[in-house]
Simulated assay, not measured.
Amino acid sequence: MGHDISGYNKAGEEIAYARFSMGNYNAILLYSFFDANDYNAGVSGSGDSSTYSIQQIEMALNSYNHLFDKSDSLSDNDPLNWDQKQILNFILNCLATAQKEGSVRVFFG
């Protein structure tokens, strides 16, 4: 079990992916940034998806930036920083797609 969260473009292609083990509390951060706590089923996602606008993803990025200091070094050697980087990349990939297509669909598995 675990949290497999994917972002999709309008063609149904996966454009973003984040994976958290069932005990990794950092998954909660990604759910909260996307205001998607209802999709968190505890040990995994609920299996549902939602469509997000550019503005909603920008809000997720703003929440991320508010929580994490931009000057923090995102070293691949630190597991916490690895999750932080994974979350940021997920948000940025979703934002890039939404800016091109107007929205992005996120699946919480």
Rank of each mutant, 00 (worst) to 15 (best):
M1W: 00
M1R: 09
H3C: 01
S6C: 13
S6D: 14
G7N: 02
G7T: 01
N9W: 09
K10E: 06
K10W: 08
G12N: 07
G12L: 02
G12W: 03
E13V: 12
A16K: 06
A16I: 00
Y17S: 04
A18I: 04
A18K: 06
A18E: 01
R19Q: 14
S21G: 15
G23P: 02
G23W: 02
Y25Q: 10
A27V: 01
A27L: 03
A27G: 10
L29A: 14
L29E: 12
L29K: 15
L29N: 14
L29Y: 15
L30G: 04
L30T: 01
Y31H: 09
Y31G: 08
F33H: 11
F33N: 05
F33C: 12
F33T: 03
F33R: 07
F34Y: 07
F34I: 01
D35Y: 10
D35K: 09
A36L: 05
A36T: 06
N37H: 08
D38C: 09
N40L: 08
N40A: 04
N40G: 10
G42D: 07
V43I: 00
S46A: 11
G47P: 03
G47S: 09
D48Q: 14
D48P: 01
D48W: 10
D48T: 10
S49I: 05
S49T: 08
T51C: 12
Y52L: 05
Y52H: 06
Y52Q: 05
Y52E: 02
Y52V: 09
I54D: 02
I54F: 08
Q55Y: 12
Q55G: 13
Q55L: 15
I57T: 06
E58P: 03
E58D: 12
A60L: 03
L61C: 03
N62R: 11
N62F: 02
Y64F: 14
H66I: 13
L67P: 09
L67W: 09
L67T: 13
F68E: 01
D69N: 15
D69K: 13
S71G: 00
S71Y: 00
L74E: 12
L74A: 14
S75P: 00
D76F: 00
N77H: 10
D78C: 12
P79Y: 08
L80D: 12
N81L: 10
Q84I: 14
K85I: 01
K85E: 11
Q86V: 08
Q86N: 11
Q86S: 11
L88D: 06
N89L: 14
F90R: 06
F90E: 05
F90C: 05
I91P: 08
L92A: 11
N93E: 11
N93D: 14
N93A: 14
C94Y: 00
C94K: 00
C94Q: 06
A96E: 15
A96Q: 13
A96F: 08
Q99F: 05
Q99G: 08
K100R: 14
E101H: 08
E101L: 07
E101A: 04
S103W: 02
R105A: 10
R105P: 07
V106W: 05
V106S: 03
V106R: 01
F107K: 15
G109E: 10
G109A: 12
